[in-house]
Design a binder for these strands. Sequence first.
DNA 1: CCTTGCTATGCAACCAGTTGCATAGCAGGA
DNA 2: TCCTGCTATGCAACTGGTTGCATAGCAAGG
Lengths: 212, 212
Amino acid sequence: MALEHAILVSLLEKPGSGYELARRFDRSIGYFWTATHQQIYRVLKRMENDGWVAAREVAQQGRPDKREYSVADLGHAALSSWLHEPIEPETVRHDLAVKIRGAAFDDPAGLVREVERHRQAHADRLAHYLAGEGRDFPPQSPAEAPSSPAEAPSSPAEAPSSPVGEGSSPPPSGASPDAERELQHVVLRGGIAYERMMIAWLDDVLATLHRF
Amino acid sequence: MALEHAILVSLLEKPGSGYELARRFDRSIGYFWTATHQQIYRVLKRMENDGWVAAREVAQQGRPDKREYSVADLGHAALSSWLHEPIEPETVRHDLAVKIRGAAFDDPAGLVREVERHRQAHADRLAHYLAGEGRDFPPQSPAEAPSSPAEAPSSPAEAPSSPVGEGSSPPPSGASPDAERELQHVVLRGGIAYERMMIAWLDDVLATLHRF
DNA sequence: CCTTGCTATGCAACCAGTTGCATAGCAGGA
DNA sequence: TCCTGCTATGCAACTGGTTGCATAGCAAGG
């Protein structure tokens, strides 16, 4: 399970309440990990019991109080050990693909509108991503073109030569805010690439459907 | 839920036992919908109770008997009505993206091996898909280039002008085996596009990680 | 003969995630 | 004043899916 870890990452990026987390899971993190507020509140409670996060009552004016969570040492350690696990087979569920293959036994042309709807949704999300990229990661140096995998030659693994040796002890344990931004950006580029791929594929699907 | 529908599609393409379905879900359909044999047996039983599928005992020589399922009328109708529902918001879960953003608070360079593993897995799957495409969909006419969304101009929706009007009644209800192949192919092309996108993105991720 | 390994099916317990509902503070407008 | 709507948190019931385990037929090899 990784919802715990997604929450840890989000809280490391910025502490917040369950409600705020729920809204982040509707955007940002939500682009690659969905969760309802129920799920978040429940998991947050368990994480607090386990000492992964600590809560702090925050009085607000003009709105109800909130419980702001931040990551405790145990949580940071848990995240670190998860990061070092080699896991994940990646489970996929594409309803639309099932529908497309199923359409062969029903009415292929009847699926056109549905596919067009999906295409529109992906186009919308792409626009949203690109807007976010333009806002949060404006192009600056000539070396960095936004969302174009420019394949930097990359000096082979010039890591900060961390004190290796220990098995599961959190290594450097705190990277630069530079790294944080860069890694957020590369994940966003992944989202952009995904949406572009989907749009192109759905066009392919539409062209195929139109042949019937 | 769509496991029922994925099973229906698979059984329409070819009747089979729970065991055979489970193996199909390890390949072919499994590329966009995973399921364990447990899940399949359980759902299959429910579908039989609901009259969606019918079972038939088949004695085999050299191996245990099996229960071969095929789709009943009720099942076909259920699939049809599902196909005509506009649903699906598409829920995503990318553990790797969580890990990448989490790496900012741990050891970015330590993630390289993990990302390389994933890249390899995707490269393997791509090779597998391409082999399958070459086997099952050999290039023939000059108009059809495999897995290249050639954007056919497509005469605007030249559907078989089906008797429209009814709301949820199964329309033509039986397309050509031609459509079946074409639609299987376009889904496979989607898988290929996905793997190619992932490989390119993971290269981007690796280049980014190497900058730390 | 016994083990290994593949085919074939299934139960039981558990866990993650969804859905429906409930509550409450507070602001702003009808 | 009452209603709407957003912030903020939560319980309870259910469902889909996973994991662990069990059984059994049959072939092939040591």
